[in-house]
């Protein structure tokens, strides 16, 4: 591994451009797998909602409309900051890039805070599926709605946590100069992930919060 001298780019690559294209292609391929990972859940959700429209509408009414809406706005804003960070690093403004990433990270944390608050609320209302679940007189499929609610938002939150970790790592890399105008790929790659997780929420929002009817 120590003969990188004979090759200007990292081992298997001929040049940086090839490396960069490979990185992007790799990330997009990974995102395709993520679409299908969440896609399994969305398929399950669709089937059950089709079978129990009333229970799902009932479940949706138990969620806090304002939290869902606010969280969507928070995530969209964080996405803007990530896109700005990408722009900044390509213009060799590392300070601005870091500033934007910090803003995006804080917004991500705010999202998780609101989410946690909503989880706590549901816990108090006995709407966490399991033996303590109280259907409030509705039919048993209500529990399925909340099962899906917790699983979908939980997996999304887990992805957010990974995203926050990636942003932290990125801040450090930019600080060390390992990510810079010459090697800006990491920001775009992490950005792709962050935007994608945002898109998952863009669909979770109407499917969970807006179907109360």
């Amino acid at each position: 591994m120590n003969d990188a001298l004979s090759h200007p780019a990292a081992p298997p690559y001929v040049d940086r451009d090839q490396h960069s294209v490979a990185n992007h292609l790799g990330m997009w391929t990974f995102l395709a797998t993520e679409i299908l990972f969440f896609g399994g859940l969305f398929t399950g959700y669709t089937v059950l909602r089709w079978a129990h429209p009333h229970a799902f509408a009932e479940g949706s009414r138990h969620l806090e409309f304002w939290i869902g809406t606010a969280n969507t706005a928070v995530l969209l804003t964080s996405s803007l900051f990530v896109a700005l960070a990408d722009l900044a690093i390509k213009r060799d403004d590392r300070r601005a890039a870091r500033r934007h990433l910090v803003a995006a990270g804080l917004l991500g944390a705010a999202f998780l805070g609101l989410k946690g608050f909503e989880y706590f609320q549901k816990f108090q209302e006995h709407l966490v599926p399991g033996s303590g679940f109280d259907a409030h007189g509705a039919q048993p499929a209500l529990q399925l709605f909340f099962f899906l609610y917790f699983l979908m938002t939980g997996l999304h939150a887990l992805h957010m946590l990974f995203g926050l970790g990636a942003i932290g790592w990125l801040l450090r890399q930019i600080g060390r100069g390992a990510v810079s105008r010459e090697r800006p790929d990491a920001v775009a790659i992490v950005g792709l992930y962050w935007h994608f997780v945002d898109c998952v929420w863009i669909f979770l929002y109407p499917l969970l919060y807006l179907i109360g009817g």
Binding site: T29, A32, T33, E34, L36, F37, F38, G39, G40
Partner: peptide, 10 residues
């Protein structure tokens, strides 16, 4: 790449 994630979520 396209099938395995569905197994994972299942």
């Amino acid at each position: 790449v396209l099938a395995t994630p569905v197994l994972a979520i299942t």
